[in-house]
Each structure stands twice: as structure tokens, then as C-alpha cells.
């Protein structure tokens, strides 16, 4: 209570170019640890781009240039001693379309453990335990405990998405990035994922992109509004929706409701 909340992700003067098209302009951001922060804004404003900066996936395109600073838990992720592989281990990503690997449920969950440790590091029992723990955490254990050898791609979409979240957990990530995690799901599925986000809150810092204003309002503690690559407003969700400080924010949320 007395301690001020600790920022988990900080950016200072972050600019990003796709070749000569600038997609992010001078973004300064402090994302509070352990909270759910939602990222809203019209299509093409750079939400996905910003999200992908945090685990440095953007670099895969050879033509991306980034300037400025991104710190995660105080560490500048562009420092030369940062190993990409370790960074991605602690900053997990969930996609718009669930993308479980075409292997069994069990193997999906332990995939991260397997690739980050030499073969034979874990006993079968340890792996079993990791699977059980992760699936309990995302609420799939009851449904899938007897079907762990089923192919993950044959599950329902909602289960697939939960499995994609479960896949991150054995690696004990600090941050979970979600890019419109519910847009492929129906109302039921959306609610299930939102509940899951609540359950995970506190243990992980969650950053979620959404086009669904109501979802941002329901499911997040803080909210960031972006427009044309710039960060317009960042405040507690209630404040942003009830008393937007910036007229552009007001326009956007009213436009969407009106």
C-alpha cells in the first residue's frame, strides 16, 4: 500500500521506422507491474508495432529501425548483453489467432521448457507437474487432463487460446503481451479469456491490445490511447473513459459509443 507501484516496462523517446515510414513517434510510457493495461486506438495507429517492440520481434524484418530506450524491470533491452532468447522467455506473446503448435497439448505446454534447457534436464515427473500447474492456472486442467495427448490444433478456439497462454507460463514470464486475444472468439470465449486475465493479474504484467472499448473498460486497470503512432493519453481506465484529459481521446471513445 505504502510503496508506489513499480514500473515494469518503461520507454523513453521510442521511435520506430518501417523503412522510411515512421510508425511510432517519441513514445514515453510507464507500465505498472502486475496490472492489466489495455492499449486502444484506431486501426493502424501502431498498437501491434508497440507491443512487438517489447520482445524485439520487429527486428525480424531487416528494414526496421528503432531509436530510444525500452527498459523492462529496469534493464534496457537493447543493451548488448541482452540475449534475445532470454528476453523472449520473460516477455511472452499471445496472438490474435490462437496458434498452438501442431503437436499434443502436453508437448505444447512443455515446449518452452524443452527449448530452453538441454535435453534430459527435467524428469518426466517434473514435466508432468509443469503441465498440470500451467493448465490449472489457465483453467484447462479439468477439461483436458485425460486428453493431454490430443493434438492441440483440434481443440476449440477458446481452449486453443488458453493453451497458448498456458504455453508461456512454465517459463515464468514477467510480462504477457496480448494482441487482440479475443477477436477470433465468440462472446463466451471472450469472457473466459477476460476472467483468465483477471486470474493472472498480479503474478504477471499484462498488456492487451483491443478494439473492443467495452472490453478495455471491463478488463483493464490502466488504459493507453494511441493515435497515428503517438501516445495520446495514459491513465487509470475509469479516468480515461469518464474524464478523458485529451479532447482526441474523448472524440474517439464517444465516436465508438455514439
Amino acid at each position: 500500500m505504502s510503496e508506489p507501484p513499480q514500473p515494469c516496462i518503461t520507454t523513453r523517446g521510442l521511435n520506430l521506422w518501417y523503412a522510411d515510414f515512421q510508425a511510432l513517434f517519441d513514445v514515453n510510457l510507464d507500465i505498472t507491474r502486475g496490472l492489466i493495461t489495455s492499449l486502444i486506438g484506431p486501426s493502424g495507429c501502431g498498437k501491434t508495432t508497440l507491443l512487438r517492440c517489447f520482445n524485439r520481434v520487429n527486428e525480424r524484418y531487416g528494414y526496421v529501425t528503432t531509436t530510444g530506450e525500452i527498459r523492462i524491470l529496469g534493464k534496457n533491452i537493447y543493451d548488448p548483453d541482452v540475449a534475445l532468447v532470454e528476453l523472449r522467455k520473460s516477455v511472452g506473446m499471445v496472438f490474435q489467432r490462437p496458434n498452438p503448435l501442431p503437436i499434443s497439448v502436453y508437448e505444447n505446454v512443455v515446449f518452452g521448457l524443452r527449448i530452453h534447457h538441454p535435453p534430459g534436464t527435467f524428469t518426466r515427473a517434473e514435466l508432468d507437474e509443469a503441465v498440470e500447474k500451467a493448465l490449472i492456472e489457465v483453467g484447462l486442467w479439468k477439461d483436458l487432463r485425460d486428453r493431454l495427448d490430443r493434438k492441440a490444433t483440434s481443440l476449440q478456439l477458446e481452449q486453443q487460446q488458453k493453451l497458448c497462454i498456458a504455453r508461456l507460463l512454465p517459463l515464468k514470464p514477467d510480462v504477457i503481451l496480448m494482441d487482440e486475444p479475443c477477436s477470433a472468439l465468440d462472446v463466451e470465449g471472450t469472457r473466459a479469456i477476460e476472467e483468465l486475465m483477471f486470474a493472472l493479474k498480479g503474478h504477471y504484467t499484462i498488456l492487451v491490445v483491443t478494439h473492443n472499448m467495452a472490453q478495455a473498460r471491463r478488463a483493464s486497470d490502466e488504459c493507453i490511447f494511441m493515435l497515428l503512432g503517438k501516445l495520446i493519453e495514459h491513465s487509470r481506465t475509469e479516468d480515461l473513459f469518464l474524464n478523458p484529459k485529451n479532447p482526441k481521446t474523448a472524440e474517439y471513445i464517444e465516436g465508438r459509443y455514439g
Partner: peptide, 8 residues
């Protein structure tokens, strides 16, 4: 992408 994003 799924693999790269868990650090493979």
C-alpha cells in the same frame, strides 16, 4: 511465430 515468441 509461436516458436520464436517463446524464445526458440
Amino acid at each position: 511465430e509461436a516458436c520464436w515468441n517463446v524464445g526458440a
